[in-house]
């Protein structure tokens, strides 16, 4: 079963534990600047919104890569960058419509979320379950449940 990162911004407090967990796992240091997941603070609106790669099936980054450095991990569904093959041309960063694949000046390669091989550190580090790792076929389940509750007129009428 493939799983996906499911992000519920309503629950995010903007603590950046996810960014630290990500950068520590991938770079060996606590460094939000090198995190593959980013939390955005929309100050005027009072909203914190985590955002990262959603692992498109027909991935623009993969299609654009001239050296086939990006491949799908069949087990996790993640699009993974091979550092050995990547030449740092950055074409994928232009191709990605979401901005979630980025160049890393220190390594001369691109970096993106690879779901930590199927055990994403960001989800484990999140203190509020704003980031969870759920069945890829049922990322909408929580929202459906919430709306099902709202539309359940019978229960309301009973009160």
């Amino acid at each position: 079963m493939q799983r996906s990162l499911y992000i519920d911004a309503d629950k995010c407090t903007g603590c950046l534990q996810c960014e630290m967990a990500c950068s520590f796992e991938n770079e060996g240091v606590f460094n939000p600047a090198k995190s593959r997941i980013k939390v955005f603070n929309f100050h005027q609106e009072g909203r914190f919104v985590p955002y990262t790669c959603t692992q498109c099936d027909e991935a623009w980054c993969m299609a654009a890569c001239p050296v086939d450095a990006i491949t799908m991990n069949r087990e996790t569904g993640a699009m993974e960058v091979s550092d050995a093959t990547c030449v740092g041309c950055k074409v994928c960063t232009i191709a990605c419509p979401f901005g979630t694949i980025n160049y890393n000046q220190d390594s001369g390669k691109v970096i993106k979320c690879d779901l930590c091989g199927g055990d994403p550190e960001c989800a484990k580090a999140c203190p509020t379950e704003a980031i969870t790792y759920v069945d890829a076929d049922a990322t909408g389940l929580d929202k459906m449940r919430a709306w099902a509750e709202k539309t359940d007129n019978a229960a309301k009428a009973a009160h």
């Binding site: 407090t13 903007g14 603590c15 009072g46 914190f48 509020t128």
Partner: peptide, 18 residues
């Protein structure tokens, strides 16, 4: 509006208000 955290804080006591 919401509670908010400082860097790395898993308590998040901060207040965001209007």
């Amino acid at each position: 509006t919401t509670n908010a955290a400082c860097f790395g804080c898993t308590i998040a006591c901060g207040r965001i208000s209007t």
